[in-house]
């Protein structure tokens, strides 16, 4: 029989986890606290309780238009990265193409390259070819950085699926399109869904590409917040940030439903 973990170490481990949890979550809790404070200065712990900063957000043109741009970009990115990444993942999973190992590495390379290097390259290329940046620039570049996530989650699901179902469907007379639609696509679905939630979250929260590829009148929510933080942060920034944290919590819940967070954590 193995000796159990010694009690002092057990206590130390529990303390360590609590402290780490406080460290990881403190910034988020503090922002939520500031957002409901009555004080017009950023202060924590908050004084009183008021929702006036949320009202201020919803009556601010700057925030609303930034949110609208972020939402549009994120939705477009979600659709394209889901279609492109899902299709690529199916082909990569079959491993029948020449150089399929190298192709996988190629498709996941945007995960390895620091975003700032890509952002600067994209800005320079776009300016040289097409002039000023537009929503299209953000759409394309966010699709590049989010597609690897869709590929990864889809591949994770496919690797556990039954490879003989597709063969069985073929034997039963299903044509290529039917096999893709009726067998492979349903097999992909949980991974694809989790990947699209990741894609949405990353695009909606992304600041580096958005800071490099911006122009007056095209400010995403994270860029708007960054600008406020550089100059004059007030509790409305905290209210917007809290709304964004809430959205992240919702997406994590959805990903857990689709794929299981445990599985994501160990891949």
């Amino acid at each position: 029989m193995v000796k159990a973990v010694p009690t002092p170490i057990r206590v130390a481990a529990i303390l360590f986890v609590i402290l780490t949890g406080v460290f990881l979550l403190a910034p988020l809790v503090v922002i939520a606290g500031v957002s409901v404070s009555e004080s017009q200065f950023i202060a924590f712990p908050p004084t009183g309780f008021s929702l006036r900063w949320y009202e201020a957000v919803f009556s601010s043109d700057a925030y609303l238009s930034a949110a609208w741009i972020s939402l549009r970009v994120a939705l477009l990115v979600t659709v394209t990265s889901c279609l492109i990444g899902g299709a690529a993942a199916i082909a990569l999973h079959r491993r029948k193409l020449p150089f399929s190992g190298a192709l996988s590495t190629l498709f996941l390379s945007p995960l390895v390259l620091p975003t700032i290097i890509y952002a600067i390259g994209m800005l320079m290329l776009w300016s040289a070819l097409f002039g000023p940046v537009s929503i299209l620039t953000l759409w394309v570049s966010h699709t590049i950085v989010t597609t690897p996530y869709v590929i990864r989650t889809t591949l994770a699901v496919l690797s556990e699926s039954n490879p003989f179902l597709e063969e069985a469907a073929q034997t039963m007379g299903a044509n290529r399109f039917q096999r893709l639609r009726l067998v492979v696509l349903p097999q992909c679905l949980p991974g694809l869904a989790a990947g699209t939630f990741f894609a949405f979250n990353i695009s909606f929260d992304e600041a580096v590409l958005a800071l490099f590829l911006r122009k007056p009148g095209m400010t995403t929510l994270p860029v708007q917040i960054y600008g406020q933080l550089e100059f004059s942060p007030d509790p409305t920034v905290a209210a917007v940030s809290t709304i964004m944290i809430g959205l992240t919590v919702l997406l994590i819940f959805l990903i857990d439903r689709m794929l299981g967070l445990q599985r994501f954590a160990s891949t």
Binding site: L25, P27, L28, D205, A207, I225, L229, S241, A265
Partner: peptide
């Protein structure tokens, strides 16, 4: 514990940094 690690991971860097600005500034906690 996975939620504890992933929630900050998936929150915008701008938002998290703002939290530290509040905590570390002169009048911060």
């Amino acid at each position: 514990l996975v939620i504890m690690v992933i929630l900050p991971l998936m929150t915008s860097v701008v938002v998290r940094t703002f939290g530290w600005m509040v905590l570390l500034s002169r009048s911060g906690l």
